[in-house]
């Protein structure tokens, strides 16, 4: 589904991603871990199409299409979704209204009729229940005045509404209380299917108890320096990153 080859990206001439290789297949869950500042959010921003980052080399294939060649909105319409580490507040723009616009733009992209008001409402009801997002929040301005945890739930609510093929969850667990973490993780699991894939970026093994990854990768200094299965996350939880850093620095 997603094939990243030798991806390099920089901002203001400072190289941040230094050759990323990653293969993700439908039905898989990948976890990306790594120390602060290693480039995890940069990777998700580059994949989502943030203009500030310049891709200096490498390719990204998304279901047979050149992802890097698409505008951010086309990437979304093709099924990429990014749950932001820091969701922005957009005063005056209603959450449900913009989602309706987004869904209809996506439908138009595939030559489908706009969603009917009735179906849309039913969808909002169903999906907000999935992450137990208060329906009042669903209709308020995007993230405006939301608590940190509410913003994260809202990201997953949007993900549920947009039904993406590939979801990247950038530290969705940070800021969630213990119950919310379980609720949001359950929501993500319910949305899992053999046809879609999920990338979870996290610092904590705890989330991976709920969303069980098929693969765990360690991103360090702009590169994936180690990959393994869920046991790797347990090992990291126990030992921290120093041993990996040492391995890399020795090599």
């Amino acid at each position: 589904m997603l094939s990243i080859k030798n991806l390099h990206a920089s901002i203001d001439d400072k190289e941040i991603l230094k050759g990323i290789d990653l293969e993700i297949k439908a039905g898989e869950v990948h976890a990306i871990m790594g120390p602060n500042g290693s480039g995890k959010s940069t990777l998700s921003s580059v994949l989502a199409g943030r203009e500030e980052y310049e891709v200096t080399s490498g390719t990204v294939d998304f279901d047979g299409k050149d992802l890097l060649d698409m505008s951010p909105e086309d990437r979304a319409k093709e099924g990429l979704f990014l749950a932001f580490q820091y969701p922005v507040e957009i005063p005056g723009v209603s959450n449900v209204n913009f989602l309706k616009t987004a869904i209809n733009e996506k439908r138009a992209h595939f030559n489908q009729e706009p969603v009917s008001a009735k179906d849309f409402l039913a969808m909002v009801k169903e999906k907000s229940a999935l992450v137990e997002l208060d329906s009042k929040l669903a209709s308020r301005s995007v993230n405006e005045g939301f608590s940190g945890g509410e913003k994260k739930r809202n990201e997953i609510f949007q993900m549920a509404m947009l039904e993406p093929k590939l979801s990247i969850l950038d530290e969705t667990d940070s800021g969630l209380d213990i119950d919310a973490l379980r609720i949001v993780a359950n929501g993500v699991n319910k949305l899992k299917s053999p046809n879609n894939a999920t990338v979870v970026i996290t610092h904590y093994q705890r989330l991976l108890d709920y969303i069980v990854p098929d693969y765990v990768h360690v991103l360090y200094n702009g590169k994936i320096v180690k990959s393994g299965t869920k046991e790797l996350a347990l090992e990291l939880e126990e030992k921290g990153y120093d041993w990996i850093k040492q391995e890399v620095d020795l090599a």
Partner: peptide
């Protein structure tokens, strides 16, 4: 960018 990333 946030809105674009949702397909708008």
């Amino acid at each position: 960018f946030y809105l674009q990333s949702r397909g708008i």
